[in-house]
């Protein structure tokens, strides 16, 4: 089976922001392992062009989202340097039907690898936590996909923005942390950190365990987006998206064509 050919196709659609039919409609028998192989082949195309891997992201971290694709496990994707927004501005260029979701980002000072990670391993390896907003954008028509499709498409990663202020990982109870996301001044979504697998630290543990299956790890200096605390909302030209994280300040993003 031509995993490389599928990776080429997905890469082309990611680069040109064109919608794609689900690969599972066109290729029989693709497994989750195949999907991660396609994801890695796609990422290699970016890194061959000079892009750089700077971290990981978790997806399908809520029960509701797992049920919507009929699985009981989270997924992960690669974060590249080119995906990070250095200013709180989202350009719709290069995006198909983008949505945003509030997340907690972990930044690491030590390597984390293995299959038996505990919360205290995570805290010992963590330098800081930071509020973040992820822009997700499936390359599939109507944002509709199966588990294999979304993994192959780098877990719908597109862009992300991390706030200026970092916090000690011990300062907040991240599961209790309330989050309010507004679009143009009106409340669109609210949630609490526990929406992410019960506690965002659980997301890091899952991330490390899944990485160990492909012989990878969280490396020092990496950032990990732990998963959406609320449902994602669509964004449109001229929108202002503001997200307040209880006690951690807020992120305001402006959207333009």
């Amino acid at each position: 089976m031509g995993l490389r050919a599928i990776a080429d196709e997905i890469y082309q659609h990611q680069m040109t922001a064109r919608e794609l039919d689900k690969i599972t409609l066109r290729y029989d028998g693709l497994t989750v392992d195949d999907a991660y192989a396609i994801q890695q082949l796609t990422i290699q195309k970016y890194t061959n062009q000079g892009d750089r891997l700077i971290g990981w992201k978790m997806g399908l971290t809520s029960k509701a989202k797992q049920q919507s694709v009929g699985v009981d496990e989270a997924i992960f994707g690669h974060l590249l340097e080119s995906m990070e927004l250095t200013n709180p501005e989202i350009s719709l260029k290069g995006l198909i039907h983008p949505r945003v979701e509030p997340e907690i980002a972990f930044v690491f000072k030590h390597r984390l690898e293995g299959t038996r990670i505990t919360p205290r391993d995570v805290w010992l390896a963590t330098e800081c936590v930071m509020p973040a907003v992820e822009v997700i954008d499936s390359r599939y028509k109507n944002f509709s996909f199966t588990l294999v499709d979304v993994i192959a498409d780098n877990a719908s990663s597109a862009k992300f923005y991390v706030a200026d202020q970092a916090f000690s990982p011990y300062q907040f109870q991240l599961d209790k942390l309330g989050v309010v996301m507004c679009r143009n001044g009106e409340v669109a979504q609210t949630g609490a950190g526990a929406a992410v697998l019960g506690h965002p630290v659980r997301s890091i543990i899952e991330q490390v365990h899944m990485l160990s299956r492909i012989g990878k790890a969280i490396e020092p200096g990496m950032v990990v987006l732990t998963g959406g605390i609320t449902e994602a909302i669509y964004i449109y030209d001229q929108d202002t998206i503001s997200v307040e994280f209880e006690g951690m300040g807020d992120i305001e993003l402006s959207v333009h064509a």
């Binding site: 309330g178 989050v179 526990a194 307040e244 994280f245």
Partner: peptide
């Protein structure tokens, strides 16, 4: 009290079913 950002976690039989924050109530 942080009326707007206070986070709520609702569980049924130990499983998280909903989360939210105060601002969900008309801001």
């Amino acid at each position: 009290a942080n009326l707007t950002t206070a986070g709520a976690i609702l569980k049924i039989n130990g499983e998280i079913v909903e989360t939210g924050a105060g601002a969900a109530v008309i801001g």
